[in-house]
Amino acid sequence: MRSSTKPSYAREVFDTREILANLTMRETRGQYRRTALGQLWSVLNPLATMLVYTVVFAFILKALPPPGDPSGLEIYALWLMSGMLPWLFFVRVVTGGLSSIVTNASLITKVYFPRIHLPLSVTLATGITWAIELGVLTLALLLFGGSPLPWLPLVVLAMVFLALFATGLALLLGVANVYFRDTEHFVAIVLPMWMFLTPVIYPIQLVEDLAQRSGEWIIVLYRLNPMERFLAVFRDLLYDNRLPQWTDSLACVLASLIVFSVGYLVFVRKESRLAELL
């Protein structure tokens, strides 16, 4: 029983994919039950965020990004959402996935199934929400003169890698959270900080200016953040309508493959002990 090797675990996960589909359904349907607006909330939430940041950053602080090249778009709200939607996806997958093990303790201690389905179902359910949001954003971009449609396949591909990156982190932190429940509180503090260290709501030009004045190392350090690379890719595709820089794309692919592999290996190693630790 204990000698189950890794390929056979992946196989078991695949064989029980029906569980994943049902857990995903549970996530998406259960979330907005008994709300008048239902799934609409998943669009309203980012819209409200967009309003707040647009007022603060476009009108009060005037931290405006350069116009889209070659799209010619010059609308802060659309620029913001091109980066904010992937960021929100990342945050939801990490926080939801990391707590999914502890939240489903009653299930884990009562039935055997590959536990990885729990964080994976969070990723898939969040992916569905993201797809709806992306649909709305695409419409808005079209309305204001952008041409995001030919780039959508690449957007989806970038999303797959972002999903791997976020899920890998969720797997790692989900296991850590079983040992130390501090993890989820800690992550709740770190994620907003991470957001402000990533050019989600302000353009990276501000940091580049700062680096020119105070030292190159600032931007070098700043760009070590994989999320900065991911947002650059998403904005190139959606807002500017151009191919991302290959260095950014490579950084995204490497970061996601490394983080997911580490998360997966740690999870598989610790999985069989989760029931007694909960």
């Binding site: 029906e18 569980i19 589909a21 049902n22 857990l23 359904m25 549970r26 349907r29 259960g30 039950r33 008994r34 299930l107 009562k110 039935v111 199934f113």
Partner: peptide
């Protein structure tokens, strides 16, 4: 494995899959 907000019908499918 029941989800309290889901209906009996939905839970049959969820629990059966688990």
């Amino acid at each position: 494995g029941f989800h309290p907000e889901l209906t009996g019908r939905e839970n049959i499918f969820l629990n059966g899959a688990i």
